[in-house]
Design a protein around this nucleic acid. Structure first.
Lengths: 378, 378
DNA sequence: GCGACAGATGGCCACGTGGCCATCGAGGAG
DNA sequence: CTCCTCGATGGCCACGTGGCCATCTGTCGC
């Protein structure tokens, strides 16, 4: 390993398209020479043709060992790194994959991004990241920007609505492989990987019911158009399946963030007939709900049982620790990335891959049988 | 807005470089035609030359209104989106910026990524994301991959070590603008934006001292080479400045993650002379420390005071809520992105921009004067 | 009537790479 | 000696765009 000196070249190559050129040469700062080594520079230095030089990278077995070595030395000296854009321009396939999550600060998506990124990175792909905040309009913007970069595939938590779907379909027609994660647009033909939302909600309701609860409220949006999200939609079904009903007063139409979950929880718990069990449909809602309960002086599980989706680390830290339904995030991310790699390297399969992975119930301390105290709030 | 039918074109254009071509035509799935509209297609459809077509996008004022309209219609019909790669290849400047964080699941970095992404996106840039897990080796990999995509700038939380610095310097020589965030490599000439680590740790120590604490332990790595991180390094200084010392038994050499913070906390609190105040140097350590305290049955602030860096949402949820030093994450992210945009659009400034932003102490319930009980554990 | 001029449009090349075909020399078979 | 083969290397073009210069057609001033 010949370590080249890190002293900064002071030479100023005249480079027409770099605006950096107008530099104060007396400045103590290292200058931006802006010269990028190409395969031609490598070839010149090695004293071979560009074709030979590039073969050293892609088909080294075709070269004479001596030639190979000369080129490899030149590559090291110049720190040559192939320009993926140029390759993609010519060859069709770009080594970039787009990921659009709803919100990167949501730990679920952060973890998802990590697993996707790791798997793709190991296969030599770069990841372009963006957020859509569950909005179809934002989606459109992000999709266009990513398509401008000619990503070869996209992993999307789609926003709700026709616009996203139509645009995704158009991208697909142009050869971009699409995978949905976390949410699947109805009637869309894409591969997807989501939680088994239905099954998980059923599991949650069954669990609470088995503990003896009948007055169960879910923090969710009971409106199939505004927020056509599966967990909310499934909850009443799961209740009915057990012969239970969801009182009108428990149903609100609202978006899912921490503050609205807080408001909703306060509202629910101060009703004349409050629920004896609360089901938070994701980790962010859970935080709002927990805060509201604390402020109201209500303590799980004596005053109310609390069950949430998403095994966020803080749920184990509070007292009592909160029972959760954990999503198989790591598997979702890894599988999504694998689907992408497979599609790009082997072409799309004949059959769509549409996975709904089961959630896992983790019993901690926040759920118990309804106490006379919680019932008597009636 | 003429909404084109979303029916899938069944035509199979023979496209030599798409491997997708071998498709089962009887498949009910929409096929990947793989045809991407170029500016030439737009020109052909509009009945003008490619030059005129592209002028409609970049210099529309030069065109005859009728011609302009024809081209714009064609663009809409074909859903033409310029290929940024080809433009960058020719023009030098790519519209892609690399971001390397230490760990995207760390809420600090997630929030940072969000703010950076938003600002860059608004200016029309795409963001390539990667993680280095604080490691210089990982850094190298990621940097190479990103440089392969010819990012025009990089925002990096650098890994520790010479390797990262040398490679970053090389990238800089090649015209990539570099900004460090969260951590600044010693002697590196890059622009950076970090917390005022020194000032924040001093503030923390002063605060605890003012409450009456003298036996203060920081969860950190007291080793300038293994983990040359500023907060750990500053802590003993800040103590000495107040005439306090850090006992040998409080000093451990370990990496900063939740589990090791947990172990360290257990170790510290079971010493013959345990600290009366704990300072967790980041949010992840705080979680480990909090868990350890709970398991030991120690309750802040009576049994020990707990102060942490990073205002993570769970710190306000637990009982008592934890006092924290908040980092100005949003400002850090936005400023870093602005630096990038400025450097790319106006060239690098003459003077380096090196910002150390102050932290903010948020007093909650986890810090108080040492009680006889906590002291008497002696 | 002629040149100057400007508005409107088109032709052409280069960017760095991958793929394809051409070339060149050595060595073996007939 | 010739033809063929094969190993090793080189030349050339296309990808989609941006930048530059060329062209063409009126119109206006003298």
């Amino acid at each position: 390993m010949s370590n080249p000196p890190t002293a900064h070249k002071a030479e100023l190559t005249t480079c027409p398209h770099r605006k950096h050129s107008s530099l104060n040469l007396s400045s103590p700062l290292p200058v931006y020479t802006g010269h990028v080594a190409t395969i031609n520079d490598v070839a010149r230095l090695a004293g071979v043709s560009p074709t030979t030089a590039k073969r050293a990278l892609r088909e080294p077995e075709l070269l004479h060992p001596d030639t190979l070595k000369k080129v490899q030395d030149a590559v090291r000296t110049l720190h040559y790194e192939p320009d993926q854009r140029a390759g993609a321009l010519r060859g069709g396939q770009s080594r970039t994959v787009g990921l659009i999550v709803a919100s990167i600060v949501e730990p679920f998506f952060a973890e998802l991004a990590r697993c996707i990124g790791r798997t793709l990175h190991a296969a030599g792909y770069s990841l372009i990241l963006s957020e859509n905040e569950y909005s179809s309009e934002r989606d459109l913007d992000e999709l266009k920007l990513m398509y401008g970069q000619r990503v070869s595939a996209m992993i999307v938590r789609p926003g709700y609505g026709e616009k996203s779907r139509d645009h995704l379909l158009r991208l697909r027609e142009r050869g971009v492989y699409i995978v949905e994660v976390d949410y699947h647009l109805p009637d869309a033909p894409f591969d997807y990987i989501t939680l088994d939302h239905r099954g998980s909600i059923r599991m949650a309701v069954n669990y609470l019911r088995d503990l003896g609860h009948t007055r169960i409220a879910a923090l969710g949006t009971y409106h199939p158009l505004i927020h056509p999200e599966l967990r909310s939609r499934t909850f009443p079904e799961a209740m009915h399946a057990l012969g239970l009903t969801v009182p009108e007063t428990y149903q609100r139409v609202m978006l899912l963030n921490e503050d609205t979950a807080y408001d909703l929880t306060r509202h629910l718990m101060t009703l004349p007939t409050p629920p004896t069990a609360l089901l938070a449909l994701n980790g962010t809602q859970a935080a709002g709900a927990y805060r509201a309960l604390r402020e109201l002086g209500l303590r799980p599980p004596q005053d109310v049982s609390l069950l949430t989706v998403d095994n966020y680390s803080w749920t184990a830290l509070v007292d009592p620790p909160i029972s959760v339904i954990e999503q198989p995030v790591e598997r979702m991310g890894t599988e999504a990335a694998r689907l992408v790699i497979r599609a790009l390297e082997e072409g799309p399969g004949d059959q769509p891959t549409q996975l709904e992975l089961p959630g896992r119930l983790i019993r901690r301390g926040s759920c118990a049988a309804p106490t006379t105290r919680s019932i008597s709030t009636l």
